[in-house]
């Protein structure tokens, strides 16, 4: 119950923050720019619109995570607002889960808003039938942002906002090439293979959440892919938050 309260409050904080409104406006502006640039795309205007629209959800979402998520807990410690919360019957892991759920919820709302805007533009272009690939892509982008938010909250609970941003960005970038790293590991010498495979397993496999190429041509993915991605996101978030909670549990607030 208290996790829901913390999540509601974090959601309210994010919604009242100008960063989130800025993200929506920037997404809409990018969609508008894509329409301006469409005639120059040599017949690939539709592809450009879908690709840019979906990429902007992930990139702007990442920006919000880096600006807001990585200081989510650290800011509360620095401003000492956390004293008023943890001196109540609120277990520390529940507090972390609430923070993660609240920001993730806000990112889901913004992702859905931008996804709807993208679908609206496509409908105006006579491609209303693209709703299914757009919905699937937005769903996967939401999952990806949820995973990155979990990392940001974990780092925020243990480090300063600047370092948390760097770690989160590092994990995000490395996570995009997780499959490549795994392939590379198979061709690496034995001594290096185990290490690379371990790193590939620890990093979030974010390429699992990318179906922009399919969506750009109006194709959908399988239910199995969506289920696997959902399960993976839940499991990864669970592990990351458990690690964060274990370290946060013994932390002193001076």
């Amino acid at each position: 119950m208290n996790a829901v309260l913390i999540a509601q409050n974090t959601f309210r904080e994010a919604i009242r923050d100008r960063v989130l409104a800025g993200m929506v406006i920037a997404g809409l502006v990018l969609l508008g720019l894509a329409q301006v640039a469409r005639p120059l795309a040599m017949g690939e205007g539709l592809r450009l619109t879908v690709d840019l629209g979906l990429s902007s959800i992930t990139m702007l979402g990442l920006l919000v995570v880096l600006l807001v998520g990585t200081s989510l807990v650290a800011k509360e410690i620095e401003r000492r607002t956390i004293f008023n919360l943890l001196s109540r019957p609120l277990p520390r892991p529940v507090y972390l889960i609430g923070k993660w759920a609240g920001l993730s919820g806000a990112l889901w709302v913004v992702s859905a808003t931008l996804g709807l805007a993208l679908w609206g533009v496509l409908a105006l272009l006579g491609r209303g039938a693209y709703w299914a690939p757009i919905a699937q892509s937005v769903y996967l982008a939401g999952l990806e942002l949820t995973v990155v938010t979990a990392l940001a909250v974990m780092f925020s609970a243990l480090s300063t906002p600047v370092l948390s941003s760097l770690y989160t960005l590092g994990f995000f970038l490395a996570g995009q090439w997780c499959d490549d790293l795994r392939t590379f590991a198979q061709h690496a010498p034995d001594s290096l293979r185990n290490l690379l495979e371990f790193v590939a397993n620890v990093l979030p496999n974010l390429s699992l959440f990318n179906m922009r190429t399919l969506a750009a041509v109006g194709e959908t993915t399988t239910a199995l892919h969506l289920s696997l991605a959902s399960g993976y996101a839940l499991l990864y978030c669970g592990c990351v938050l458990a690690l964060g909670a274990a370290a946060f549990e013994s932390r002193d607030f001076r």
């Binding site: 409050n9 904080e13 401003r79 000492r80 607002t81 004293f83 008023n84 001196s87 109540r88 019957p89 609120l90």
Partner: peptide
């Protein structure tokens, strides 16, 4: 132990 506890920290800060 904190269910029936009320606490005011020194120089409190709020949202």
């Amino acid at each position: 132990s904190r269910v029936r506890l009320g606490f005011l920290p020194e120089q409190p800060y709020f949202y």
